[in-house]
């Protein structure tokens, strides 16, 4: 599906990367543990997370993860958004909690890693 579909499904707010929402995404992973993201995620997945610090963006960069969605209404600060912007990483925030957000995307046909 397209990232614009993801935004719609999750009623997400796009914090940076608005111009990149035409991109396709084929898999996703929901995880608060960056250790596990580094160990298990295949590249170009979308990351849903409740963790909020700069290492989330850096981990995404290392793993070639192009989209990070913060769940439960968490909003990153300007520093984190600025960092993502520089690395061409799309950042969204959704009010849904991790389990629900993941379930909604899965049900809509987005596979796992």
């Amino acid at each position: 599906m397209k990232l614009s579909d993801v935004r719609e499904i999750l009623s997400a707010e796009v914090l940076t990367g608005e111009e990149l929402l035409d991109k396709e995404v084929h898999s996703a992973c929901g995880c608060d543990l960056m250790s596990d993201v580094l160990a298990f995620v295949k590249d170009r997945a979308l990351l849903l997370t409740g963790l909020m610090n700069p290492q989330v963006i850096r981990t995404a960069e290392m793993m070639d993860i192009e989209t990070v969605i913060f769940v439960r209404g968490k909003k990153p600060d300007e520093a984190i958004i600025g960092m993502a912007k520089m690395k061409d990483i799309i950042v969204m925030t959704t009010d849904y909690p991790l389990y629900i957000a993941a379930g909604m995307l899965y049900k809509a046909g987005l596979g796992n890693v």
Partner: peptide, 12 residues
């Protein structure tokens, strides 16, 4: 709490 410390780094 920062999202690390699962003991996966060295194996990775």
């Amino acid at each position: 709490e920062l999202g690390f410390g699962a003991g996966m780094g060295l194996p990775n």
